[in-house]
């Protein structure tokens, strides 16, 4: 297939940036979207031009590094997949494809399609953990049974890959889906109870400081999330936050 690509090019964080048009030819349907960009970049390097910078690593949909806004949708037209899992068979010969970076106040562009998601790390550092030091002498792993349903729900929340598609998709640039997934994972497990209140308060505080917007129940994040993280988590986080805010510590 032959395609026209309209790609956001931006030299650095403070550069203005603009859409630049490229043509790629002889693209196979079996290629992944990123392999199609590889072909473009190979040609650009051969010509002595600057190749398109983008984040990617595992290329199997789990590391959360790839992050392209394709034809106005985070990770492109398919549901439940990351950009690296999107294949060219989802496009038509002759099509024009717009490719942009995640856009959000919380994610400054570093170069071209690559953004800085350090804010997610900082939110995690504010409380996304259970305070247990390495010792290997905590309780035996089977000492506290966890009902299967809770364990499964906790797991579902924990499968968030931290790619930021939720933020990029949200008209408010909200990170609520990401933060609530982490809060839910721990809130659903007995191990997470001790720091339950502090955790949600600290993580939400950090999230606000980092410049992410609020949730107004649009639900686009859930639709575009490559891992199907449920809005239920946001509802749970709101409850957790409310409980933590109104109940005195003692």
């Amino acid at each position: 297939m032959n395609l026209t690509l309209k790609i956001w090019r931006q030299k650095s964080t403070n550069d203005q940036g603009k859409i630049v048009e490229y043509k790629v030819t002889d693209i196979s349907e079996d290629m992944s979207f990123l392999e199609m960009i590889d072909v473009l970049n190979y040609d650009l390097v051969e010509k002595g031009d600057d190749p398109v910078t983008f984040d990617h690593d595992c290329r199997e949909g789990i590391c959360g590094m790839c992050s392209m806004f394709i034809n106005g949708e985070a990770h492109g037209p398919n549901r439940g997949v990351t950009t690296c899992q999107l294949h060219m068979r989802s496009f038509k010969d002759g099509e024009t494809i717009y490719i942009e970076p995640w856009r959000s106040a919380g994610f400054p562009v570093i170069k071209d399609l690559m953004v800085d998601r350090g804010a997610f790390d900082r939110i995690q550092q504010a409380g996304g953990f259970i305070s247990v030091n390495t010792s290997g002498r905590t309780l035996d792993a089977n000492a506290i049974p966890v009902p299967k349903e809770d364990a499964d729900k906790s797991f579902d929340a924990a499968t968030c890959i931290g790619c930021g598609a939720c933020v990029a998709t949200c008209p408010n640039g909200s990170a609520m889906l990401f933060v609530s997934a982490k809060v839910s994972q721990y809130a659903l497990l007995p191990q997470g109870q001790v720091e339950r209140k502090e955790r949600v308060l600290n993580m939400v505080k950090k999230m606000d400081e980092e410049g992410f917007g609020n949730c107004s129940n649009i639900g686009a994040c859930e639709v575009q999330c490559p891992k199907g993280i449920s809005l239920e988590n946001i509802a749970r986080m709101n409850r957790e936050y409310l409980m933590a805010s109104i109940k005195p510590e003692n």
């Binding site: 905590t138 049974p145 299967k148 797991f155």
Partner: peptide, 17 residues
Amino acid sequence: DQCVAQGVPFARDYGGL
């Protein structure tokens, strides 16, 4: 033991183990 204490959600059976 360490990972369970950290909140790693391993698969469990219906008895919760």
